[in-house]
Amino acid sequence: MNVARRMVRWGQRKSPWILHFNTGACNACDIEIIATLTPRFDLERFGVLLKGTPRHCDIMACSGPVTRQIESRLVRIYEQVPEPKLVVAVGSCATSGGVFNGLYNVKSGIDQVIPVAAYIPGCPASPQAIIDGFAKLLKTLEVGK
């Protein structure tokens, strides 16, 4: 790993900026992601900052089973995220389709469309689980691993 990449990795691990994208979720995981960023749980203590545009972010937090309508948009947004990028699937339906599995307009999970680095199960994923998922993901980014 060259010096520049190590620097990026280090920065990404110390302060990953996330983009929250709803890919057809029921809003439950989305409000839990926001709740994780607010004072009680405060994900920001790990340097995690919510950003509004894919061009600024390192990690995409996607919730929802991916509807057919959003599929092409998800790919486009994923392509706009600069490398190195990671995707976190938040919630059961983002992981495997969950309760929506088998409905005519949904895929079964984010990994059917884009590569996923971490899965956080739960319907909805609780803030504790989200923090745990992010902490584990950030640990894998440690330089030298």
Partner: peptide, 10 residues
Amino acid sequence: GYNHRGIEKG
């Protein structure tokens, strides 16, 4: 319609 999952049919 981006969130349409087909719940009624389901």
